[in-house]
Simulated assay, not measured.
Amino acid sequence: MANIKQQIKRNKTNEKSRLRNHAFKSSTKTAIKAVEKAVASGDKDQALSSLPLAHKKLDQGQAKGVFHKNFVARHKSYLANLINGLN
């Protein structure tokens, strides 16, 4: 445990940030899984309606610094390829 006042404050803010990032990552994974589930069932309309939310979550994560830009690009490409494979 830190005994320096500023480090104690920093530990508190780091913990808050960690929890916020964890919740955001979880909601992003849920959005991605919704698209994957729709593709697995062969429902292209449902997949196309779930895709914008997944893209939005990924873009927000990049803007907030939760995700790296290559991570976001890779996942957006992956989801697009899944949906294009339904034709």
Rank of each mutant, 00 (worst) to 15 (best):
L53K: 12
T28L: 10
K56V: 11
A63F: 05
K57P: 02
N84K: 15
A47R: 02
H22E: 14
A31Y: 04
D59C: 12
A23H: 13
N87W: 02
I4V: 04
R18K: 12
Q46A: 15
H22A: 13
L79M: 02
V35H: 01
L58H: 07
K16R: 06
N14K: 13
L82A: 07
G61E: 03
L48R: 04
H75A: 00
L58V: 10
G61K: 03
K56D: 14
K57V: 02
I4L: 03
Q7I: 03
T28F: 11
N70A: 12
K16A: 04
Q46R: 10
L48T: 03
L86P: 01
F71A: 10
A63S: 13
A2V: 07
H55Q: 15
K9M: 06
L58M: 12
A73T: 11
A38K: 03
D59T: 15
Q6M: 09
S27A: 10
K25P: 02
V39A: 02
K5S: 06
A40C: 04
A31M: 04
L48D: 07
R10C: 00
D45P: 03
S41R: 13
K57I: 01
H22N: 11
G65W: 08
I32Q: 08
D59L: 15
K69I: 04
F24A: 13
G65Q: 05
I8T: 10
N81I: 01
A34N: 12
R10W: 01
R10P: 00
N3P: 00
